[in-house]
Simulated scan of single mutants.
Amino acid sequence: MSEEKPVLVDVADGVMTLTLNRPGAKNAVNRAMAEAVAEAMDELDSNDDIRVAILTGAGGTFCAGMDLKAFVTGELPIVEGRGFAGFVEAPPQKPLIAAVEGFALAGGLETMISCDLVVAAENARFGIPEAKRGLAAAAGGLIRLPRQIPPRIAMEMALTGDFIDAERALQLGLINRTVPAGSALEGARELAASIAANGPLAVKLSKQVINESTDWTRDDMWQQQQAIVMPIFTSEDAIEGATAFAEKRAPNWKGK
């Protein structure tokens, strides 16, 4: 792959694939990469023909984190309003799947946990070793990771900087599934196809409820959910889904 573009973007069958394309630097995130990811995320959410996206890395590595060489020169891989890597503080509205080969470390892990689903190679490794470099996992490792795995395990990972393997990550629920080394992207595409086959409005709003409901109270959670999901039940897609089921055919979604 050429390193001329920091991110390669491909769209096929309703699935956008974003490939972090700095293999010589283990796909470390610099400013140019962050800006390219942010641009792709805008296209993902604005293009009705795209249902789901996959984020992966070139050269057998997902992402080794922030480009430290660029950091010491004063460059930060942050996009205003989007955060690190161009999206960790403002993930897309549509589903995003991480396809992980090799290492997802530091900002690479934080990028991974900003995705909705994770397919990882059996030999993948994960960690937030920022403390080993006198830094802190401030792109989500300290606040998002404890919400995805037991807080004591997140605490250990943050304070020691030690890595965990794919088997442990699967046990902890940090990733969805493991696949043989070299086939993470293939596995992610299978998962993406399953999502893309469903009603796009239902998928988008279901993701919204799951993400936002973590802050809801028992007193208002049903009302909050109702306000978001009601458009699903009054949509053209809902009628189409029921009709297609009765007629034993694949639905023709309109996303409305």
Rank of each mutant, 00 (worst) to 15 (best):
S2W: 02
E4I: 08
D10H: 14
D13K: 14
M16N: 05
P23H: 05
N27P: 13
A28K: 10
A34R: 05
A40R: 10
M41H: 07
L44I: 10
I50Q: 11
A53W: 02
A53Y: 04
L55A: 02
T56G: 03
G60N: 12
A64I: 13
A64F: 12
V72D: 11
V79G: 08
V79C: 05
E80P: 02
R82Y: 11
G86S: 07
V88I: 13
V88W: 05
P92S: 08
K94H: 05
A98F: 10
A98L: 06
A98S: 15
L109T: 06
E110F: 09
T111P: 01
M112D: 03
A124C: 09
R125N: 06
I128H: 02
R133C: 03
G134A: 09
A139H: 15
G140D: 03
L142Q: 15
R144Q: 11
R144F: 02
L145E: 14
I149C: 01
I153F: 08
E156D: 14
E156V: 11
A158Q: 09
L159Q: 11
G161H: 03
F163N: 03
A166Y: 06
Q171V: 03
T178K: 11
T178C: 13
T178I: 15
V179Q: 13
A184M: 09
E186G: 06
R189L: 15
E190P: 00
S194Q: 15
I195H: 07
A196T: 05
A197R: 15
P200I: 00
L201G: 08
L205I: 12
S213Y: 02
S213W: 04
R218W: 12
Q226E: 14
A227N: 14
S235F: 12
S235E: 09
A238C: 08
E240Y: 06
T243E: 13
E247V: 01
K248P: 00
G255H: 07
